Computed example of a mutant assay.
Amino acid sequence: MADQIKIRAQINGDLTDIRVLMQHPMETGQRRDERGQSVPAHFIQTFSVLLNGKPMINGQLNTSVSKNPLFSFRAKGIKSGDKLAVTWTDNRGEQRQDEITLN
């Protein structure tokens, strides 16, 4: 199973700063290992950010995104006690979901 998604959120009045670190190798399929063998493509294809179970962001990634992608954004209307969840699915069908409750 993939490493935990790190979700950080800081509420500042009406705005909340959110940072999401999705730990994933994000291989392009174009790199070669030390023996000259192609390293198979392995990357996050889709991700979602949910607030209290409702979609806030739905995104698609590809091979051009670096290892362990970090996303940062701001949102309005989030309050203490809300649940923020992040999910992703990669090109091998692997999935990960993690959730935090905001303080």
Rank of each mutant, 00 (worst) to 15 (best):
I78N: 00
R19V: 12
T101N: 10
E94R: 06
G53Y: 12
K54F: 14
T46G: 03
V49E: 08
I57Y: 02
I78V: 08
L84K: 00
R32W: 04
R19P: 03
D14S: 14
R74C: 14
N52R: 15
I7L: 07
L50A: 08
H42Y: 12
Q23H: 13
I78P: 00
G59P: 02
G13I: 10
M56L: 13
A75M: 07
Q45M: 11
I18R: 00
L21D: 03
F73V: 05
R92F: 08
P40Y: 04
F71D: 00
N91T: 03
Q23A: 15
T28Y: 02
Q95L: 06
A9T: 07
E99N: 10
A2M: 11
T28G: 05
I100R: 01
P40S: 04
T63H: 11
L61T: 02
R31T: 15
H24E: 02
D98M: 11
K54T: 15
E34P: 04
G93V: 02
K83F: 10
T16E: 04
Q95Y: 11
L15Y: 15
R32Q: 10
P25W: 06
F71H: 04
P40T: 02
P40F: 09
Q95A: 12
N62I: 02
G77F: 03
V20P: 00
M1S: 15
S80R: 13
V49G: 06
G77C: 09
F43H: 05
V20C: 04
I100M: 07
L102C: 07
F47A: 03
V20G: 01
K79H: 09
A85I: 05
E27L: 15
I7Y: 04
S66V: 07
V65D: 00
R19C: 13
K67R: 09
G29L: 05
L61K: 03
Q30M: 14
T16P: 08
H24P: 04
A9S: 08
W88K: 00
N91G: 07
I11D: 01
I78W: 01
G36L: 02
I44S: 01
L51K: 15
N12R: 13
M1G: 14
Q60C: 11
A41W: 00
P69M: 01
M1D: 14
F47K: 01
R31D: 13
L84Q: 03
N103V: 15
K83H: 10
Q60Y: 11
S66W: 01
K76W: 09
E94Q: 12
I7T: 06
R32I: 05
Q97W: 13
P25T: 07
G29K: 03
S66A: 12
D98F: 04
D3S: 12
L70N: 11
Q30I: 08
M56D: 09
G59F: 03
Q60S: 07
K67W: 06
A75W: 05
E99W: 05
T28K: 04
S38L: 10
W88N: 02
A41F: 00
N103W: 11
I78K: 02
K79V: 12
H42V: 02
P40A: 07
A2C: 11
T101M: 14
K79R: 14
I7M: 06
I57M: 08
L51R: 10
I57V: 06
H42T: 08
H42M: 12
L84S: 09
A2E: 06
A41M: 05
F73T: 09
